[in-house]
């Protein structure tokens, strides 16, 4: 009984420590300007104010960055889900010359860190006129090797007989993919959708490079730049952080079962 209590006290204390940065972020975002920079540091606002959120949306045009982030994350998620699932299904269920070699080569490419590709990719997009456009961010995420891999592993477990039966019924190959395979792949598709959306939303390195004009910034890029200019506006920056983090946090909490399953699939099979 006492051991059980000690265990739960330890877990609760660590949970508290884990939550402090987030709780303080929310709390400070609601403090009157300047209050977070007083001593001793207050944990709760003396009076709750939404003025910093108002300022972000009126004077600093955060709705623009929010919109940019939503558009880019949604489009990348939709496109990559379609392309990855088609390729993953093909690798799992079609026989063609060089399939296994091609797949192994693709997997081997995963060791290349994204940073290595950024310099020539920037030059290429510069030539194509895609620097500082949504497309410039999107093309880099249209398909991912990891996504193809996840779908393939899942699709391997679909019995061939289902596909054969659909063929005998006269279904076209695309129709089989769309009406037979995709519905069966729903769990892994949800997992991959959350993964992709969160990754793109949180990404910083590539958008920082390819989005050069401040009207095109995504939330993380805008927040990084703003936080350099508004070092002393603690409460304002906390409000900006809340707006950046909240969408992904809500998405994660709503769909965490799928997210956590995905991590375990990747780790066991990867």
């Amino acid at each position: 009984m006492t051991r059980r209590m000690a265990l739960h006290i330890a877990m609760a204390v660590i949970a508290g420590l884990t939550l402090i940065p987030g709780l303080w972020m929310v709390s400070a975002s609601l403090m009157p300007a300047g209050e977070a920079s007083s001593f001793p540091p207050p944990f709760l606002p003396s009076r709750v104010t939404f003025e910093h959120y108002a300022e972000l949306f009126t004077r600093l045009e955060i709705s623009r960055y929010l919109l940019n982030s939503i558009i880019i994350s949604t489009v990348v998620t939709a496109i990559s889900l379609l392309f990855n699932s088609m390729a993953g299904y093909a690798f799992a269920k079609y026989r063609f010359a060089g399939r296994d070699k091609m797949f192994r080569f693709l997997i081997a490419e995963m060791v290349i860190p994204a940073q290595v590709t950024t310099l020539p990719l920037f030059l290429l997009l510069n030539k194509l006129g895609l620097v500082n456009t949504y497309a410039g961010v999107i093309v880099a995420g249209m398909a991912t090797i990891y996504g193809i891999f996840l779908i393939r592993q899942f699709a391997l477990s679909i019995p061939d007989s289902l596909i054969e039966a659909a063929r005998i019924d006269g279904a076209s190959e695309f129709r089989i993919y769309w009406s037979v395979i995709l519905p069966l792949c729903k769990p892994i598709m949800v997992t991959l959708a959350i993964f992709t959306f969160l990754t793109v939303w949180n990404d910083f390195f590539w958008p920082l490079i390819v989005l050069t004009d401040d009207s095109m910034y995504t939330l993380p890029v805008a927040l990084a730049i703003l936080s350099g200019e508004h070092v002393r506006d603690t409460e304002l920056m906390m409000a900006g952080s809340v707006i950046t983090v909240l969408p992904v946090l809500v998405l994660f909490i709503a769909l965490q079962r799928y997210y956590i399953q995905g991590i375990m699939m990747g780790s066991v099979k990867g």
């Binding site: 940065p21 993380p220 952080s241």
Partner: peptide, 21 residues
């Protein structure tokens, strides 16, 4: 869920928060 939450948060936002912490 509590222990995992920091993983999904936006790194840039977290860095901004921790700079003040």
């Amino acid at each position: 869920t509590v222990y995992f939450a920091p993983v999904v948060t936006t790194l840039v936002a977290v860095a901004v928060v921790w700079r003040y912490l």
